[in-house]
Design a protein around this nucleic acid. Structure first.
Lengths: 164, 164
DNA sequence: TTGCAAATGAATGTCGTTTTCATTTGGGCA
DNA sequence: TGCCCAAATGAAAACGACATTCATTTGCAA
């Protein structure tokens, strides 16, 4: 790690090494705050912005990529040998990975005007996993709903004061 | 529109009717602010939060869905007869749609543990369109980059003060 | 050892989303 | 038609995650 950093012209500070170490140890789909918490367990003096900046650096060095699941949080996912996409269950929040290569032929066939190769791009899918789909009655027989969000039910006030 | 609203138990206010009208007139992948601007052209007294709330209501009524392209902006897309996904070019920001049904067989084949039907889910893909892919040399021969972001080059200060 | 660019950490800024709340209003009903 | 009240509105503020600023510290090459 020290070597990689210095080779690329970055200083190997103790904070940086700790952050890299923590990320590589537990770094699948981790958020900034999750990593921040892990780092703080080992050195409570490390700042939030330092974790954030080094997570960006990890991406810049090609060790990870940002993943956007559509829930407003940026996740950082270690780069894997085989490019993969993410299936994100809107119900149980489970994250499933799929092999990118298997999807590409069909993708490029249906997408006129665009050409997707397993280089530098991402596929994020939001839907329902097997068990949740079953439970929710998502069978493919229904008409397309599309909203992709469920109403969970919160407090009541004016009818339009809470659109869940 | 008046009827739909009243049937569902919502009041048909002039603001609401205007917002619905403006959305349906121009509503492919529109942001809250874009719609807000359009609405203001016809009635400059309508508030931002009213537009936001009614956009949510439009989704709740099944007329539109939220789309998250990963650029930090929520877009609202009218529901179409055939479910479709989005290909978002990271370079030229072009948005291409593709037929969801054509992708499903391949998707379900590669995604064990999840079962995706054209009901209530979304596929968002970030990558490069034909022309940008060409220009950037994204040929599929390169190794997987994954970061999905390009360095555009801004001002310089401390090396780590700007991670582009 | 020293000099200085890079890195850090606390604080602050930014920006889109969401909520609060006082006020207004649609529309059911007498 | 007028009344009533829950629903809707609009201005402002709260919120939350991401991003930047800047004074200070520090790694490390010479």
């Amino acid at each position: 790690m020290k070597e990689l950093l210095r080779t690329k012209g970055y200083k190997a500070t103790p904070q940086r090494e700790l952050i890299f170490e923590c990320f590589l140890a537990a770094g699948r789909h981790i958020t900034v705050d999750e990593l921040y918490q892990k780092v703080r367990l080992k050195d409570s003096s490390v700042g939030h912005s330092t974790v954030w900046r080094n997570l960006k650096l990890i991406c810049k060095l090609g060790l990870a990529e940002e993943v956007n699941l559509g829930d407003g949080l940026t996740r950082y996912d270690r780069i894997t040998p085989e490019p993969h996409g993410h299936l994100y269950c809107l119900e149980c929040k489970k994250l499933v990975e799929f092999d990118m290569a298997k999807l590409l032929p069909a993708l490029n066939e249906t997408a006129q005007g665009s050409r997707f190769q397993p280089v530098g791009f991402k596929i994020e899918i939001q839907g329902y996993c097997d068990s949740c789909g079953e439970r929710l009655g998502v069978t493919g027989e229904n008409s397309y709903n599309g909203s992709g969000t469920k109403n969970v039910g919160k407090k009541e006030r004016g009818k339009n004061d809470d659109l869940s």
